[in-house]
């Protein structure tokens, strides 16, 4: 079994505010790992450090053995990152956006064309791909962005709150896509503040509060440990 992501004592300070205060966990290849916790506990900060956008103030993160600071370029070749509340270039059509991003990541016409074909399928947008992104609804835009993130077949996909703010149908479709790709071997690190939806999506859950990991296990194991049927209750009990 390969370790896709290895986090050791990872910490980040903004000026003198410690947003992430020493996180350690592993993610196995092909796994869907979810960082769960309320707003402002350091989930996005953690994902940004893994996505090589922020430099940790302490600790290390390694993607398939490559350090995110010393070997940032190699890590960028392995990952794909979907920022929280991301947008796209509003005046491009959905297809042009996929074309552009495929070239940025793959730099090879034939590989990019194959990726775009996959992205078109995964987005489920059909003919609407010919329309400009500014005409898309929130759900359509999110599906396009998710398709963009995974169409290049990254070894590790980092998705920050991929379903937040979406309706039931769009949220369901996105979760289905993630599951389908994980079954094909892609590794996912996602974040969410919604315990309910994460239970059905992820293989393992890391519960985080105030920049610290409180527990890290499967949903079933966590529920058994706190003898409850409700994951939200697990969190409440953990933070008390």
């Amino acid at each position: 079994m390969t370790i896709a992501l290895e986090i050791k004592d990872l910490a980040k300070k903004y000026k003198d505010f410690e947003a992430v205060a020493g996180l350690s966990f592993d993610v196995r290849e092909g796994e869907i790992f979810a960082l769960v916790g309320p707003n402002g506990v350091g989930k996005s900060t953690t994902l940004k450090m893994i996505a090589t956008l922020l430099t940790p103030t302490a600790g290390t993160a390694a993607v398939f053995g490559r350090d995110t600071v010393r070997d940032a370029h190699a890590v960028r070749e392995l990952i794909s990152y979907l920022p929280e509340e991301a947008g796209a270039y509003k005046n491009l059509t959905g297809r042009d956006y996929l074309d552009f991003m495929a070239m940025v990541f793959l730099k090879d016409k034939a590989r990019a064309a194959a990726a775009v074909a996959e992205g078109e399928r995964l987005s489920g947008l059909g003919a609407r791909l010919e329309d400009k992104i500014k005409t898309y609804s929130k759900g359509m835009a999110r599906k396009l962005l998710l398709a963009r993130a995974v169409m290049i077949r990254p070894r590790l996909a980092i998705l920050d709150e991929p379903t937040s703010g979406l309706d039931i149908v769009n949220g369901y479709e996105i979760r289905k896509t993630i599951k389908e790709l994980a079954a094909g071997g892609m590794t996912f690190l996602i974040s969410s503040h919604n315990m309910g939806e994460i239970e059905f999506l992820s293989d393992r859950i890391g519960v985080i509060n105030k920049g610290r990991l409180l527990a890290c296990d499967t949903a079933a194991a966590l529920k058994a440990k706190f003898s409850t049927e409700d994951l939200e209750e697990v969190f409440i009990k953990l933070t008390q």
Binding site: K48, A51, T52, L53, H73, R76, E77, I79, S80, Y81, L82, P83, E84, E85, A86, G87, A88, Y89, K90, M101, V104, F105, K107
Partner: peptide
């Protein structure tokens, strides 16, 4: 604002 910059910065 759109975070498209973050996306590009996380690319190779």
């Amino acid at each position: 604002e759109n975070k498209t910059l973050e996306t590009l910065l996380s690319s190779p």
